[in-house]
Design a protein around this nucleic acid. Structure first.
Lengths: 151, 151
DNA sequence: TTTAAAAAAGAATATATATACAAAGGTAAT
DNA sequence: ATTACCTTTGTATATATATTCTTTTTTAAA
């Protein structure tokens, strides 16, 4: 993986988990992690990632754009799953932008025989059941996992 | 109604209907309408209204942070869809390389109850229907969207 | 109406972000 | 390895936004 890609991924994580108030703010956080970058580069990265700036009570906050509004996202803390739904053949788990891979990994490790596998995009995880009969069980399982971990 | 309230209402309208790229940009538009205001005041108004700034291909755009505003953002994504097909359980949308995330995002923002979610790779978007019965409707929806926005 | 307090707004400026340009780094073909 | 090209980045700076300080306007009570 290229240095840039690594940086972009880390930026996504930080935007989801911390209150990033300015480019310079993020420059320092990344620097402390050994990722050296200038404000100018972050300006470009933000454009590339589709980052938006919301004005909050605590000043500006940079967040990843997703299907939720800026304010809603800004309020979210920790690794939350937004929803779990299904149709006749699949289960769809919605998460925050950039979180899907992690959630999918977590689901994989449940090692359930009822789950054939998962496919993760950026903010959506597809769970493929080993049989349509297992769909409700899997939905329950994921919802339970969600409450246990979000508390 | 106070002058300030009148201004705030007009600002909301303008943010919804026009591409506002900066405070100064809006200062001029308002001035042309006989509403005199400085950049500093708009800075305060934007904070009060919860305006957010999105970085688009055409530069910054200021939008209201509301559920409606998501649709505004979506309109900004320029894209081309190459094909829309389906089987008994899924819809597959093919796009140009690198465009899938944007298309998926756009489809998400349609906020259709018939769509559970999307998963995007590089040039392919998987659309998961909330029921198999909705597949034809979704195909039509996406095709309509395609002609409206690419035409 | 006068007055005191609060709210709103402007001017100047501090702070923050985007970009032009140059340089460095990477890639593919020869 | 060399060339030509494309991408990425930094530096310096232009552009844009937020804030401090001050003045003006509005509001409410007497």
């Amino acid at each position: 993986m290229s240095a840039k890609l690594r940086r972009l991924n880390r930026i996504k994580e930080l935007l989801n988990n911390r209150f990033i108030s300015s480019h310079e703010n993020l420059v320092k956080i990344l620097d402390a992690e050994g990722i050296e970058v200038t404000q100018a580069t972050l300006s470009r990265d933000f454009a590339e990632l589709g980052v938006i700036r919301a004005i909050t009570e605590k000043g500006a906050r940079y967040i990843l754009d997703s299907h939720e509004s800026g304010k809603q996202i800004a309020k979210l803390i920790g690794f939350e799953i937004l929803s779990v739904h299904n149709n006749e053949s699949l289960i769809v788990v919605r998460t925050l932008a950039g979180r899907a891979q992690g959630i999918a990994h977590f689901i994989d490790r449940l090692n359930s025989s009822e789950i054939l596998g998962t496919v993760a995009g950026d903010d959506t995880v597809l769970v493929i059941p080993s049989s349509h009969n297992h769909i409700q069980n899997i939905v329950s399982l994921v919802k339970k996992m969600m409450t246990e971990h979000v508390g």
